[in-house]
Simulated scan of single mutants.
Amino acid sequence: MTNNKSNADLLITTILSGIEEVKGKEITILDLREIENTVCDYFIICEGTSNTQVSAIVNSIQKQVSKSLKDKPWHVEGMDNQEWVLIDYVNVVVHVFQKHIREYYDIESLWGDAKTTEITTSY
């Protein structure tokens, strides 16, 4: 069991590093493990200011995870319009939003029972 937790922790740390490398904003981690019938253990949610930045965040995450952990996403969705890109690493799902789309869908509220961690960035 410990090994599983450390793999998830390592994946989360690597994803956060990818987001921070290209200055992704408003990073939140939702821990869904205590909630029944969830599709994964964690959501990581962040935002970019434009299509270009959303794309850069997604590429940075995939590059970091591939390089550090030799892992690639099971599924990526939303790269066509780059307003909301979902990167599915099975136990960890990353949502990269543009601000207005994030506010509209407000998935943090939908998962209000989850333990929430806000990541403070220094940029």
Rank of each mutant, 00 (worst) to 15 (best):
T2I: 06
T2Y: 11
T2K: 08
T2C: 01
N3S: 14
N4L: 10
K5D: 13
N7A: 13
A8G: 00
D9I: 02
L10M: 13
L11K: 04
L11D: 12
I12Q: 05
I12R: 02
T13V: 09
T14F: 01
L16K: 14
L16F: 11
G18F: 04
I19R: 05
I19D: 07
I19G: 06
E21L: 06
E21N: 10
E21I: 03
V22A: 03
V22S: 01
K23L: 12
K25A: 10
K25F: 08
D31G: 13
D31S: 08
R33N: 12
R33Q: 14
I35R: 05
I35F: 04
I35W: 00
I35H: 05
N37F: 04
T38Y: 00
V39S: 14
V39Q: 12
C40S: 11
C40G: 05
D41T: 05
D41M: 04
D41R: 02
Y42S: 04
F43H: 05
F43C: 04
F43A: 06
F43G: 08
I44N: 10
I44M: 14
C46G: 09
E47Q: 14
E47M: 09
T49C: 05
T49Q: 10
N51Y: 03
N51H: 12
V54E: 08
A56R: 03
A56L: 07
A56N: 14
I57A: 01
V58S: 12
V58M: 09
N59Q: 14
N59S: 15
I61G: 11
I61K: 01
Q62R: 11
K63G: 07
K63V: 02
Q64S: 10
L69V: 08
L69W: 13
L69H: 13
K70P: 03
D71E: 14
H75V: 01
V76F: 08
V76N: 11
E77G: 00
E77K: 01
G78E: 13
M79T: 15
D80E: 15
D80K: 12
N81E: 15
Q82S: 11
V85P: 06
L86C: 06
L86T: 12
I87S: 02
I87K: 01
V90M: 04
V90G: 07
V92Q: 05
V93Y: 00
V93Q: 03
Q98M: 12
H100W: 01
Y104Q: 10
Y104M: 14
Y105V: 10
D106Y: 03
D106E: 11
I107F: 11
E108N: 11
S109L: 11
S109N: 15
L110F: 10
W111H: 06
W111F: 12
W111Q: 07
G112K: 05
G112P: 02
D113L: 03
A114E: 11
A114S: 12
K115I: 10
K115C: 04
K115T: 09
K115Y: 08
T117C: 02
T117G: 00
T120M: 09
T121A: 05
Y123E: 13
Y123C: 00
